[in-house]
Amino acid sequence: MTLTVLEQISAILVGLALLLGFIRLLLGPTAPDRVVSADTLSVIVTAALVAVGAWLGNALYLDVALVYGALAFVGIVAVARAIEGGHS
């Protein structure tokens, strides 16, 4: 597919955000760092899915982003509860 200039810029931004968040996941010294970076990445990926839907010119892909955004929150909250578990 061929992208317009704006779409190419958005693609580069999404890729850069993914890369930076992933570097934090690999480097992060403690587990909470890594969990927070996973949460950040899930938000970025929700945006990336919407962008991909725009590039492909098909509104069907927005449903995937909807489901992803709704469920990534629940998953991250469960992991956060598991971390907090020891202190309560």
């Binding site: 992933f22 996941l25 587990a31 890594r34 969990v35 996973a38 990445l41 899930s42 892909y61």
Partner: peptide, 29 residues
Amino acid sequence: HIAAVAATSIVSLALSVVFVLLRAPDVAM
């Protein structure tokens, strides 16, 4: 272990975007 769980969720996160790029929205969802 919690960091490993976070990394596992990253694997399936990237995989779902790959599925969208491979024109498989059902599988991606």
